[in-house]
Amino acid sequence: MKSQPDSTAPVLNKAVPVRHPGRWLSAVIILGFLALFLQSLVTNSNFRWDIVGTYILDVKVVQGVGWTLLLTVASMVLAIVLAILLAFMRQSDNPVFRWSSWVWVWFFRGTPVYTQLVFWGLISVLYPRLSAGVPFGPELFSVDTSVIVTSTVAAILGLGLNESAYLAEIFRAGLKSVDRGQMEAAEALGMGKTKIMWRIILPQAMRVIVPPTGNETIGMLKTTSLVLAVPFTLDLTFATNTLANRTYLPVPLLIVAAIWYLVITSILMVGQHFIEAYYGKGVDNLAPATVNPGAAKAAGGGADVQRSIETDFPEESAR
């Protein structure tokens, strides 16, 4: 079906492209600065790359990386669960839900995360014992607050609750971005509210929600360095600071910390890429979905049952 080249084929325009001397000039300047910087990395002995090499895989440092990751993941999971709840409550018909959600966001967004972390560290001073029971009535059981709210729990609560307020706004924006017609179409099919939210609205909202949430996760990775306010003393920043104080060599240990934060950020960015691809299905990402060929045969629609994956692109499926 290829069209034959023939004598009437048009002569293609081969225009001389516009020259961009400014681009070349700016490239030379930037590369010059880069070369100077790289040279200093090698020649400036104050960087102490030998110390960086010694401590990059130090047990304390690697454990610090583990704790930082744990705090990041746990507080983000807590924040995401709360944010979904808060965003749904904000859209609810129930005015008490809407109001509670608003107050929550107002409070946790309106106070510094450092203050909140100190507060969670002091919770056992404020409430020495936690008990469950009827208000003004009998007590069912009680336990020392410090047993439940350890410094790890305090750090996760402090980071997670603060983050939930920011994420709630991101989720709210995402839910609002979905076309009103989607809700109507699902309602017209007789779907219930919960199913509409989870199966129709939220998956589409995720396209808008994921990029800023990835941003927040990377932000959280670095915010974990504030947990010494609790005080929590096992994370990466605290570990490298301790080593720096012991060795009187702050610069190489800052570099150790920076390298690890960059490595983790890079890994998180890869993860975000795949999550974005997943939720971009049908809009940004048009890889054809798999279809069960057995059902196609059963339906007798004349479908080609030899295909294990129905691509539905005629040139690929018509083998």
Binding site: P288, A289, A296, A298, A299, G301, A303, E310, T311, D312
Partner: peptide, 15 residues
């Protein structure tokens, strides 16, 4: 699949 066939789109299921 029957319905897609009925509206003439049996070959568009995966789109």
């Amino acid at each position: 699949y029957e319905l897609l066939d009925r509206v003439g789109l049996a070959d568009r299921a995966g789109h």
